[in-house]
Simulated assay, not measured.
Amino acid sequence: MANLPLLLVADGPSALGVDSYQWVSIAMLVLIGVFVWKKVPGLITGGLDNKIAEIKSQLDEAKDLRAEAEKLRDEYAAKIAGAAKDAEAMMEGAQREADAILEKAQADSEAMVARRKRMTEDKIAAAERDAVAGVRAAAVDAASIASRSLIADKHGADADKALADEVISSL
Rank of each mutant, 00 (worst) to 15 (best):
M1I: 13
N3D: 11
L4W: 06
L4K: 09
L4Y: 07
P5V: 01
V9H: 12
D11K: 12
G12Q: 14
S14I: 08
L16Q: 12
G17V: 06
V18F: 09
D19I: 03
D19Y: 04
D19P: 02
S20N: 13
W23F: 03
A27T: 09
A27P: 02
L29V: 11
L31F: 05
G33S: 15
V36Q: 14
V40D: 13
V40M: 12
P41W: 02
I44S: 01
I44H: 01
G47A: 15
G47E: 09
N50Y: 08
K51F: 08
E54C: 00
Q58W: 11
D60E: 14
E61W: 08
K63A: 14
K63D: 14
L65V: 10
E68A: 08
L72I: 08
A77G: 01
A77S: 04
A78D: 12
A81L: 04
G82P: 00
A83S: 07
A84L: 10
K85L: 04
K85I: 03
K85A: 05
D86N: 08
A87G: 04
A87R: 09
A89R: 06
M91R: 14
G93F: 11
A94I: 15
D99M: 09
A100K: 14
E103D: 15
Q106P: 02
D108S: 12
D108M: 11
A111P: 00
V113E: 07
V113W: 06
A114R: 10
A114I: 05
K117E: 14
R118W: 11
M119A: 14
M119G: 08
I124L: 13
I124V: 15
I124G: 02
D130V: 00
D130T: 02
V135F: 03
R136T: 01
R136F: 00
A138P: 00
A139H: 00
V140K: 03
I145S: 04
I145T: 06
I145W: 03
S147D: 06
S147V: 04
S149T: 13
S149F: 12
L150H: 13
A152Q: 02
A152H: 03
A152L: 03
A152D: 04
A152V: 01
K154L: 06
A157F: 09
A157R: 09
K161E: 09
A162K: 03
A164T: 15
D165T: 00
S169E: 10
S170D: 02
L171T: 11
